[in-house]
Amino acid sequence: MGLPAIFIALSILSSAEERLRVVEVDTSAVQGQAFSARVKVKPLMSFDQVALELFETGAPCHKTGENPDSDSDWTCLAAVPADAKEGMYNVRILLNGEKAFASTAVIVPYGFPTYALNLSAEKKALYKAKGREKEVEKIRGTLATETPERLWEDFVFPVVGKMEGEYGERRTVDGRLKTGYHRGVDWAAPEGNPVLAAADGVVLLEGRYAEEGRMIILDHGQGVTTAYLHLSKILVDEGDEVEAGDVIGKVGSTGVSTSPHLHFGVYIHGTPLDPVYWFKEYPNLLRK
């Protein structure tokens, strides 16, 4: 006896490769910038999950449009770290854990500068502060928060000031190269100047930490978070809802800092990318 036609039809539709269609996918990305893809998924299950795999790690994609009578739209984003090795990488898009698309992409080097930090003995000691490992674990976990809903409409610059530190910089202390790279941008501004929420969101974390000083982390939804470091004062509490442009803190020089400034970071799924690039490109990366 043959299988019922409805069963055959559902079997075909349930195939990830049949149900997911790639509209646009990057073939290259630059260190410190973003890799993106847009896909459509044929309607079948209300609990569909789409994920992007790059650098052998997965990140959830997010639904950006849906019509009961047509395919749903999804956007996939991944930040390319400043220290990602240049070369060819495998790209996979998964639907409900099953491979639906595979290709390759080239990671292009950027050429970040190196900068010498002149720190006092007191400031250098903060790198080895008691409990520092637990602080880092908490901060990184918070920055990787995933909220399915998109909470913002637009981004605004969080402070008025002069950019003095670039994303991706390698730092030296006492002539020795520090591990890692600068994960945001530094804007110099007078102590006490207002620091603004860069977009609508929710306060995930606020407090004082050894290296970061007084800091705030905001969740903007769909894997996007922002961080505000070295503040002199924090004006929000965890769980507060904020709007773009709200004053959330004051410029300072707490933590490992040599002068008043705001260190500002943008993260996608917990990985930092260049905030200057983000402000220019996010409307194109995150189509509604």
Rank of each mutant, 00 (worst) to 15 (best):
D26Q: 10
E241R: 14
Y127H: 13
G201R: 01
Y277V: 06
E137L: 10
L77E: 02
Y282I: 02
A29M: 06
E135N: 07
I234A: 05
L52I: 03
A197M: 01
A244G: 15
P60K: 11
E238I: 00
R38A: 13
H220R: 06
G265V: 08
I6K: 14
V173A: 12
Y110Q: 13
N193P: 06
D237H: 12
F279C: 01
L77F: 04
G265D: 05
F47K: 14
I139T: 09
C61H: 02
L94K: 08
G245E: 04
L235P: 11
M45H: 14
P190I: 01
A188V: 05
K280Q: 14
M163P: 03
V39E: 02
G184V: 03
L196G: 02
Y127S: 00
T271L: 09
H230K: 02
S70Y: 11
K280D: 15
A5N: 12
E166C: 09
L285E: 06
V80E: 00
W187F: 15
L126E: 11
K162D: 12
E17G: 09
K42G: 09
L218S: 03
T225N: 12
I268H: 00
G213K: 11
K63Y: 05
S257W: 04
G192F: 00
I268D: 04
T226W: 11
N193W: 08
R170Y: 13
F7V: 15
G131L: 04
F112S: 06
V39D: 01
V50P: 00
